[in-house]
Simulated scan of single mutants.
Amino acid sequence: MHNQTFMRTYSPRQEALARKAAQQRDNQSFENLASSDLLTQYRIKSEPYYRMVADEIELYEAAYSVRMPIMLKGPTGCGKTRFVEYMAWKLNKPLITVACNEDMTASDLIGRYLLDASGTRWQDGPLAVAARYGAICYLDEVVEARQDTIVAIHTLTDARRMLPLEKKGEVIEAHPDFQLVISYNPGYQSLMKDLKQSTKQRFGALDFDYPEHDIEAEIVAHESGINLDIAKKLVHIAERARNLKGHGLDEGLSTRMLIYAGSLIYKGVQPLAACRVALVRPITDDPDMRDALDSAVTTYF
């Protein structure tokens, strides 16, 4: 028998494919590490205090399980933002919050090219970061944003779940953990500042309002450090002020304002002075309305 000599055949294509596969693995590892580092700053480090009022926690968890976009509707200072922070902590997901305003453009939300010493580079906006790496993106007071900016979220809030970066020529397929949450105050709605039906119908909605008396007093006492009796007096004042909404006041006293007043009282400020600073003076400049609110304060303090 003749000995057969086997020779390895050099294949540039196979070598190139192997190098490409190795590079892809390295790039994926680097991207995972980079995304982990990037999202660390957006994680809620400790449990935010949130007092459940109804079934909002259960409903939100169900919505997140199917990645349904959620709209939170309610008056200023009633706990919408705290609720989102609590749910992000409970679900162990990073939370990227954007305070919307009328000057915010789609580029502010999605991203833009920046010029630095090395030339031009692309910088993802907060919405793109959330969609790319899997965070909850919270657009606070979304109706304050321009309509052309709001339209930019449409492709992320339907079955497509993608975000086109037209300036970059890239399409981001939303990460499986990504969810979009928006909030606004229906009390400030006008024909010029409202969400279009084409936007509203892409979201599930949760209604928020000021809690009932005992629950609100519990929240104020916990957050400010004052005792429950004083907290209940502050809530009584707020309830009287809220009855004046539409009759001289554009908005009632919020739970947030009560916590501010309670915090001042906890620090030793006299209750009358604390209420003037934190409740009465910020909400109105009308002398008669201030007198009416001052009278409500003196009734309980």
Rank of each mutant, 00 (worst) to 15 (best):
M1G: 12
N3G: 12
N3F: 12
T5G: 03
T5P: 02
T5E: 06
F6A: 13
R8W: 09
T9N: 10
E15V: 11
E15N: 11
L17Y: 07
R19F: 05
K20C: 04
Q23A: 15
R25L: 08
D26L: 13
D26M: 06
E31M: 12
A34D: 05
S36D: 08
T40M: 09
Y42D: 07
R43T: 10
I44N: 08
S46D: 06
Y49N: 01
R51D: 01
V53E: 07
A54H: 09
A54N: 10
D55M: 07
D55L: 07
E56F: 04
I57L: 11
I57F: 02
I57E: 01
Y60M: 13
V66K: 15
M71C: 05
G74K: 13
T76P: 05
R82L: 14
V84A: 14
E85C: 06
N92R: 15
T97Q: 10
T97P: 05
V98L: 15
V98G: 05
D103N: 11
M104N: 02
R112I: 11
L114H: 07
T120N: 08
R121W: 08
D124T: 06
P126R: 08
L127A: 06
V129D: 00
A130Y: 01
G134R: 07
E141K: 15
V142T: 05
Q147H: 11
I153L: 14
I153R: 09
T155P: 06
D158A: 09
M162V: 11
M162P: 03
M162R: 15
P164S: 13
L165E: 01
E166Y: 08
K168A: 14
G169V: 13
V171K: 14
E173V: 07
L180I: 13
L180T: 04
V181E: 02
V181T: 11
Y184G: 03
Y184L: 08
Y184R: 05
P186R: 06
G187H: 09
F208K: 12
P211L: 01
H213F: 08
I226A: 00
N227P: 05
N227Y: 11
I230W: 00
H236R: 15
H236T: 14
I237T: 03
A238Q: 04
A241H: 00
H247K: 13
H247C: 09
L249N: 04
D250S: 10
G252K: 00
T255F: 00
G262H: 01
Y266K: 14
P271K: 15
L272H: 07
A274M: 07
L279R: 00
L279H: 01
D285P: 00
P287G: 07
R290I: 09
D291Y: 09
A292R: 13
L293A: 03
D294L: 06
F301V: 14
